[in-house]
Write a protein that binds this DNA or RNA. Sequence first.
RNA 1: GGUUGGGUAGCUCAGCUGGUUAGAGCGCAUGACUCAUAAUCAUGAGGUCGGGAGUUCAAGUCUCCCUCCAACCA
Length: 584
Amino acid sequence: MTDTGKRRILVTSALPYINGIKHLGNLAGSMLPADVYARFQRLRGHDVLYICATDEHGTPAELAAQAAGISVRDYCNEQFAIQKAAGDGFGLSYDHFGRSSGPENERLTQHFAHVLEANGLIEERNMRQVFSIDDGRFLPDRYVEGTCPHCEFEKARGDQCDSCGRLLDPVDLIDPYSAVSGSKNVEIRETRHLFLLQSKMQDTIRAWVDKSTDWPPLARSIALKWLDEGLRDRAITRDLSWGIPVTNPDGSVREGFENKVFYVWFDAPLEYMGATQEWAKAKGDPDAWRSWWRTDEGADDVDYVQFMGKDNVAFHTVSFPVTILGSEEPWKLVDRLKAFNWVTWYGGKFSTSNKRGVFMDQALELLPADYWRWYLTANAPEGSDAAFTWEGFQAAINSDLANVLGNFVNRITKYCASKFDAKVPETGASGEAEAWMVSELETRLPQLVEHYENMDFRKAAAETRAIWAAGNEYLTKAEPWVKYKSDVDAAAIGVRTGLNLAALFGIIAQPIIPEAAAMILDALGIPEDRRTLKQDSLDDVAALLDALPHGHEIAPPDVLFRKIEDDQVGEWTERFGGEDQAQP
RNA sequence: GGUUGGGUAGCUCAGCUGGUUAGAGCGCAUGACUCAUAAUCAUGAGGUCGGGAGUUCAAGUCUCCCUCCAACCA
């Protein structure tokens, strides 16, 4: 076995914000597909590093902590534990799940700010901002409301009017008031902020985007649109206490920035590196992150893939690259992006207050993670928004998992147990049915690999299912239960091939439904090091169908997937909403 | 308002640079089989590809107009 063709793949998922448990749509739009992709590439034998973290800074966290009556730090600790547990429950196989409030990110953020300033890309500018005297603080954009100067809508938010849709500057609002306290005792004050001079990076970013031809159209068009409009300089500090302090290179607090911190969108993406540093430290090799992120220290041959919802594309294609390229340091940049649309709840928005939609913790109380993973992957919101419906969910689980895969494993292992003493039959030679199965796999397995490589998750799931279905078709052709009556050897080859197919089905199921796949592979006694799908096994499919040692004993598993009953759907619809509560 | 994506069988969706009778899964109908979670396998019925005009020997697939839906807008 050589290492030829072994790749190093860095996978990151957009960082879930710390404020509250995520719903199925959030999961489906970045963390889950990133996990499926990471697992698939590990299956292929590649060296994968899958990094994620919570995004903890900013006003929402500060306000949520205030509402809960605890410190922001405590609030974040609490929420982090909840999100970590939910991720673990869903089998998200992060190599590290970090926190943007950690010391690594703080150092990185301050480092980048210093370097960018030294490169002439950061400068202080005066800004006029709304200051709430009663709250004793400046009010960042969304936390001031008032009357829209354009359409006179009375509840326009500081950054945008929800009525006429125009972008606003908070200081232009008529009769502004604090969205925090409702106080109208506000005034406009001058304040200084750091600005990242993105306009100076326009040409550099465009050149980089132009080179990135294998981005999906959505990502490219968003990036190009921003470039066409011209990159705007933007404030990268905010008047908050929760966040990363603004320092001088010597570590002291920058004068005039005692009550300010970096804007959450400046520090959050840097946590991709920060979390990798946390990972390296945790595994006792503090420099291990370098070969993944520093192109002068080995990261040149890394394929870096980012997963995110469509709302994040602009930040990942433009803002974050400005930070990295502006540093003029040899940091790894993204190679490929995969952006997702939203999962909707019967076409409407997920909403806790309106009792609509399932959140990650609730989902796990209802059914095993694999059920959700399968549905959300097979119906990933790739081309457009995708509607979750209980009916579709039930149909997908019962048909794909229970009937096609679960039943296949069940029928072949039970039959083997009843007629062949639960041992892999040793006799019998391949015939027509086996040849058909081989040719089927010879076309389907490469297609499966290709769909994963292209990050077409719906297609990958569909192909996975098609391969399972082909196994059932094979058994119909081989019909060992018929042949058994007259020719035990002829039945034996059918059972042996069937068992090997079950193993293969478990192997290819691992990226999407890891728990069930493990049950299958455990039942068949497949050792850990044989649970892969490396290229050499694809090159010899016939060998795959006779991989289990002859005479090897198997243990038929229990029912792998219990079907979802109609009354369960009824109950869940009642509890979490369904058709009736759909948004018009 | 701007931008992007979308409107294809009852449902969820594939259909690349235009080219024989428009595809898949689910659901439905019929048949087969009995190893299996009443599972599986086979066959079949379902679509004037949102509306209109145009380009072309040829358009779901390109152009224009209209309409509906969704999302994004530092």
